[in-house]
Design a protein around this nucleic acid. Structure first.
Lengths: 229, 229
DNA sequence: AAGTGGTCTAGACCACTCC
DNA sequence: GAGTGGTCTAGACCACTTC
C-alpha cells in the first residue's frame, strides 16, 4: 500500500497546526516532498492543491508555496429548501399558500429585478410551519415574462421554491442576510410582537442573464444560521 | 494542444444547463467520455470530480454518475477581519478599545465556553468605525487559561481579532448569524435607536479541543451579508 | 534564464456497490 | 461477479513568475 494524498495532506496540515511549519514560512517544493514521502509528485500536488483551496497555503509558480500568514477563513454554506431544513430538525413540515396573484410589477421591484416597463409578475405569499408553529414567511415574485407557465401553476400544495428548483435548476443566484423589525403583518404571521428583530434572507435568481425570481424569507424570532469551519 | 479538464468541465456544464443532460439522467462513464473527448481518463475524472464538489452531479462507484435532481446550492463565505472588510468598502478604518478587564468567567459564559470552575477570562469591548461612523461593536471574552499571555497584551492599538489571528492561527471555529434588538448600551455605541433590529454574528474558537475565545459582533443598522453563487 | 507549480498521458490496481 | 469511480505512478511538457 502506498502513501495516499489524504495522508500527505493530513501530515502537512499537522505540521502547520502544530507550528513545525510557521505561518509565512515557505514549504519544500513538490519534487522534494514527493521524495521525502516516497510517493509520486502528483500525489503531493493533489494534497497541496487542496490545502490551497482550503485557504491554508498559498502557491505561486516559481515563487513556491508558503503557509498563509492569515489563513482564509471560509465556510461552505448549504442553502436548503425550507421543507428539508425543517425535516432535518426532526419537526413535521407544513406548507400553506396565503396569497397568490399575477400583477404588474411595482416600480421598486421593476428596478430591483431589472424588468421591462410592462412586465408582469406573479406575487406569492406563503407560510412554512414546523410542528405546527410558524417557521418562515415567504414573500415571492416570479417574472412571468421569463416563466409564463408559472401563472397556470397551482401553488396550493407545492411551494414555489420546490416548483422552481424542478422547473429551472442550475440558475445563478445572489443571497443576502440581514435583520429586520417585524411589522404588524409579519408579526401576525410569525406569532411574534411588532418590532421584534427577525432574521431575513433575500434571494434573487437568474437564468442566462434573465431575472427569474426575487424572494424575501423572514424567519421566526430567534432563528440562527450556524456553520462550522 | 490537448483538451484540458477545464474545457471538459465547461462542456459538461453547458450540456447540463442547456438541458442536453437532464436532471436525474445518468452520464456516460469516464472511459467513454475520455474516448469521445479524445483525452486521458484522468482529465475527465478531474472535470467530473469538480462538478461533483460543486454539487452539480452525483457520483457512485458501479452506479455511475448522474445529474443531480436538486443541485446542491452552496456558497463559499469568506469571513474577513473587520478592518479588511471596511477597507474593502473603500472607507477609512478606525479601532477603539472601550473596555478591557480580566475577571472570573460569569456562569453563562463558563457553560458556553466549557470552562473549568475557576477559569478567568479577559473581557474586551471594542468599537470599529468606518469613515468615522460606528460600524461594528465587539464584545469578546478570551480564555486566560488557554492564552495567559493575552492578559499582558495591550489592546489599545491592535484589535483582539488581529492579535488572535497572528498568535493562534489555524483554529477551529463555529459561527452563527442572527438578529437582535438593540439595547440601550448598543444603541448608544452604534448610534441607533433602542429596539432597532441589528445583525449579529457570534463566533467561538477552539485550538486542539480547548476553547480560546467567544465573541459577539453586532453590526450597525442595515448591515447585510451578501454572497453570489 | 531557470525554478516552480499546473496539467496531461497511459497504464495500473483497487474499493465500493449494484445486480 | 463485474462495472464504475478513486487513486497512484512515472514521465513529460508547459506556463508563469521571479531573478
Amino acid at each position: 500500500m502506498s502513501i495516499t494524498y489524504r495522508e500527505v495532506k493530513a501530515d502537512l496540515l499537522r505540521q502547520i497546526t502544530q507550528g513545525e511549519l510557521a505561518p509565512g514560512s515557505s514549504m519544500p517544493n513538490e519534487v522534494d516532498l514527493a521524495a521525502s514521502y516516497g510517493c509520486a509528485r502528483a500525489t503531493v500536488n493533489r494534497a497541496m492543491r487542496e490545502l490551497a483551496d482550503d485557504g491554508i497555503i498559498e502557491r505561486r509558480r516559481k515563487a513556491g508555496t508558503r503557509v498563509r500568514l492569515n489563513p482564509i477563513r471560509q465556510v461552505r454554506l448549504n442553502i436548503p429548501i425550507v421543507g428539508q431544513e425543517i425535516e432535518e430538525l426532526g419537526a413535521a413540515y407544513r406548507y400553506a399558500l396565503v396569497h397568490g396573484q399575477a400583477e404588474p410589477a411595482p416600480n421598486w421591484l421593476r428596478a430591483r429585478m431589472a424588468l421591462k416597463r410592462d412586465d408582469r409578475v406573479l406575487h406569492l405569499t406563503c407560510m412554512h410551519y414546523a410542528d405546527g408553529a410558524p417557521y418562515q414567511h415567504e414573500d415571492r415574485w416570479i417574472n412571468l415574462d421569463a416563466l409564463p407557465e408559472a401563472e397556470q401553476h397551482d401553488f396550493s400544495d407545492i411551494g414555489p421554491n420546490e416548483w422552481l428548483v424542478s422547473t429551472v435548476p442550475f440558475t445563478e443566484a445572489q443571497i443576502s442576510f440581514h435583520a429586520v423589525q417585524a411589522d404588524a403583518t409579519i408579526a401576525d404571521y410569525l406569532d411574534c410582537t411588532e418590532g421584534d428583530a427577525l432574521f431575513q434572507a433575500e434571494r434573487m435568481t437568474w437564468l442566462e442573464g434573465q431575472t427569474i425570481t426575487f424572494v424575501q424569507l423572514t424567519y421566526r424570532r430567534g432563528h440562527r444560521l450556524t456553520m462550522q469551519y
